[in-house]
Simulated scan of single mutants.
Amino acid sequence: MSQIKTPRTIQVGDTIGDLAFGPVTRTMLCLYAGASLDHNPIHIDSDFAKEAGQDDVFAHGMLGMAQFGRLVSNWASIEALQSLSTRFTAIVPVGSKLRFTGKVAARAEAAGKTIVILDLEAFLEGGLKAFSGRAEVVVEA
């Protein structure tokens, strides 16, 4: 886990650490469905997924977005996180392991605060990008 630098030393290109996640299990998907109230059968019913043309169930996109939230809040804090957006770029099958990473894309000073824009990515074990994202973090100067 990476620790946040002081606002004055945060630079464009700095990495914020990484987060390993997985393997994704059927139990994990069922528990996430219950916690998120997202019971879309494509994520929890193998027969339904196969009828829809998939090999099997796959992870909820928002489960991956939650990992971006974990990554950013490990680096800064949940209170510092102002916005988080995610693009789902690949299906995450059962059994997948992912690595979530982030780096500083921009920084600015305003009203005594450092505003940091982070570019976020997540990759499946084979290197396929599964998620991309962006976060805005505000750090007191």
Rank of each mutant, 00 (worst) to 15 (best):
D119R: 10
P23T: 01
S85P: 12
G64E: 06
G102N: 05
R107S: 07
G64F: 03
Q54T: 10
I42Q: 15
F48R: 14
A59S: 05
A76W: 04
A122V: 04
I42E: 14
A80T: 06
G53L: 01
F88L: 02
S73I: 00
A59V: 00
K50C: 08
M65D: 10
D119Q: 13
A105I: 06
F58M: 07
Q11C: 13
G13Q: 11
I115W: 03
I91C: 06
K97E: 10
I44D: 11
L84D: 09
V104A: 07
R26M: 06
I78N: 02
H43Y: 14
A110Y: 13
L118I: 09
E51P: 13
E125N: 11
F88T: 00
E109F: 09
Q82T: 06
D18L: 07
G69I: 10
K103H: 14
E125K: 07
T101G: 09
T27E: 11
A20E: 15
L71Q: 04
R99L: 04
L98F: 08
D14A: 04
T25Q: 12
A76G: 09
L63W: 04
M62T: 12
K113L: 09
D55G: 12
I10Y: 04
D56K: 01
L29G: 12
V57Q: 03
T25V: 06
A49L: 07
I16Y: 01
A66H: 00
A66Y: 01
F21L: 13
Q11A: 14
V116R: 00
T25G: 10
A49N: 14
I44K: 11
T25E: 12
N74C: 07
S73D: 00
T25H: 11
F48N: 14
A106D: 04
A20P: 14
I115R: 02
V57S: 05
I117T: 05
L19E: 03
Q82L: 04
D119F: 10
T89M: 08
E79W: 03
R99Y: 02
T9V: 15
L84A: 11
D38G: 11
G22V: 05
D38N: 12
G127M: 08
L31E: 15
V12R: 10
D38E: 09
D14H: 01
N74S: 10
A66C: 01
M62D: 12
I42K: 14
F68T: 02
L81P: 02
I117F: 05
R8P: 14
A66S: 01
Q82H: 07
G61L: 03
E109R: 12
L81F: 05
T86F: 12
A90N: 14
D45V: 11
D55L: 05
G34K: 10
R99G: 05
S46W: 09
V24K: 09
L71C: 04
D56C: 00
E51D: 15
T101V: 07
I117W: 05
D38M: 09
R8Q: 15
K113G: 07
I42F: 14
E109D: 14
L84W: 10
